Simulated scan of single mutants.
Amino acid sequence: MTSQLPSLPEAKSQAKTHRREHADQGTEISHSQSLEWVARQHGFRDWNAFHAAIGDRPPAAWTPDGRVTGTYLSRAFKATVVSSAPVSPGWFRLTLDFDEPVDVVHFDSFSNFRKRVQCVVGPSGTTKE
């Protein structure tokens, strides 16, 4: 068993990759077979036991003091995660503290800089917006 378990979205991504690799080689496997394979790779007897061990926790970078990068209102940012809380399976409310304030207004004559924001981020690492 590995010492660091993946998050639920990471484990499901591993299963999708495994299934796609088999399909590329001409062998079709079911989604459940792929999930079971991922569980065994991490030392668990089946997907249910693995899923219970993982729980619904965020990826490591989304935990407090984690570092993230991305775009906010089409502006690039680097930030530290201040807090993280589950909203629904795979979705987390993050509070981010930007390294450099981000201007959230698109007017030449007016600016409004934000240093700390909240967002809800899903399994793909993006918001619904």
Score class of each variant (00 low, 15 high):
residue 77 F to C: 06
residue 67 R to G: 14
residue 37 W to A: 09
residue 82 V to I: 10
residue 120 V to W: 02
residue 69 T to I: 13
residue 70 G to D: 07
residue 21 E to M: 13
residue 38 V to I: 04
residue 41 Q to V: 08
residue 28 E to K: 14
residue 36 E to A: 11
residue 97 D to W: 15
residue 81 V to L: 03
residue 33 Q to G: 05
residue 126 T to R: 06
residue 97 D to I: 13
residue 13 S to E: 12
residue 65 D to R: 13
residue 62 W to I: 12
residue 92 F to V: 03
residue 35 L to S: 02
residue 32 S to Q: 08
residue 44 F to E: 01
residue 127 T to I: 01
residue 118 Q to N: 11
residue 42 H to C: 05
residue 55 G to P: 10
residue 85 A to M: 03
residue 60 A to E: 07
residue 49 A to W: 07
residue 80 T to M: 07
residue 90 G to D: 00
residue 107 F to A: 12
residue 108 D to S: 07
residue 80 T to I: 02
residue 9 P to V: 03
residue 47 W to K: 02
residue 18 H to E: 09
residue 75 R to D: 04
residue 109 S to I: 15
residue 52 A to G: 08
residue 51 H to M: 10
residue 73 L to S: 10
residue 128 K to V: 05
residue 30 S to L: 15
residue 68 V to D: 06
residue 94 L to V: 02
residue 84 S to M: 01
residue 77 F to Q: 04
residue 77 F to R: 01
residue 127 T to S: 01
residue 10 E to Y: 08
residue 114 R to F: 04
residue 88 S to V: 07
residue 32 S to W: 06
residue 7 S to K: 05
residue 97 D to S: 13
residue 22 H to D: 12
residue 103 D to A: 04
residue 49 A to V: 03
residue 100 E to R: 12
residue 12 K to I: 15
residue 61 A to G: 05
residue 30 S to C: 10
residue 63 T to K: 10
residue 120 V to S: 00
residue 86 P to I: 14
residue 105 V to T: 09
residue 96 L to V: 04
residue 48 N to G: 14
residue 117 V to P: 02
residue 10 E to G: 04
residue 19 R to G: 02
residue 99 D to V: 11
residue 52 A to P: 04
residue 129 E to D: 13
residue 43 G to D: 06
residue 56 D to G: 01
residue 8 L to V: 15
residue 57 R to W: 13
residue 21 E to N: 05
residue 11 A to E: 01
residue 39 A to P: 02
residue 22 H to N: 14
residue 89 P to W: 15
residue 118 Q to R: 15
residue 111 S to W: 15
residue 67 R to S: 09
residue 55 G to V: 01
residue 38 V to G: 00
residue 19 R to F: 10
residue 61 A to L: 12
residue 39 A to G: 10
residue 77 F to N: 04
residue 58 P to M: 06
residue 27 T to C: 15
residue 106 H to N: 08
residue 38 V to C: 00
residue 9 P to A: 12
residue 74 S to W: 11
residue 126 T to P: 10
residue 103 D to Y: 11
residue 113 F to W: 00
residue 100 E to F: 11
residue 7 S to L: 00
residue 50 F to N: 00
residue 102 V to L: 08
residue 44 F to R: 07
residue 39 A to F: 01
residue 9 P to H: 02
residue 110 F to K: 13
residue 44 F to A: 03
residue 42 H to W: 04
residue 70 G to W: 06
residue 98 F to H: 02
residue 59 P to W: 07
residue 114 R to K: 14
residue 97 D to A: 14
residue 38 V to N: 01
residue 123 P to C: 03
residue 86 P to Y: 09
residue 114 R to V: 12
residue 39 A to T: 01
residue 13 S to I: 10
residue 122 G to N: 05
residue 110 F to G: 05
residue 114 R to N: 14
residue 113 F to C: 04
residue 24 D to F: 07
residue 11 A to C: 08
residue 45 R to N: 14
residue 8 L to I: 09
residue 24 D to P: 09
residue 39 A to H: 08
residue 78 K to N: 15
residue 60 A to D: 06
residue 90 G to N: 06
residue 25 Q to I: 06
residue 55 G to F: 03
residue 63 T to D: 11
residue 92 F to K: 00
residue 47 W to G: 05
residue 117 V to M: 02
residue 97 D to F: 11
residue 78 K to C: 13
residue 102 V to S: 02
residue 95 T to A: 07
residue 67 R to M: 10
residue 16 K to N: 12
residue 101 P to G: 01
residue 25 Q to N: 14
residue 127 T to P: 03
residue 129 E to Q: 15
residue 129 E to H: 15
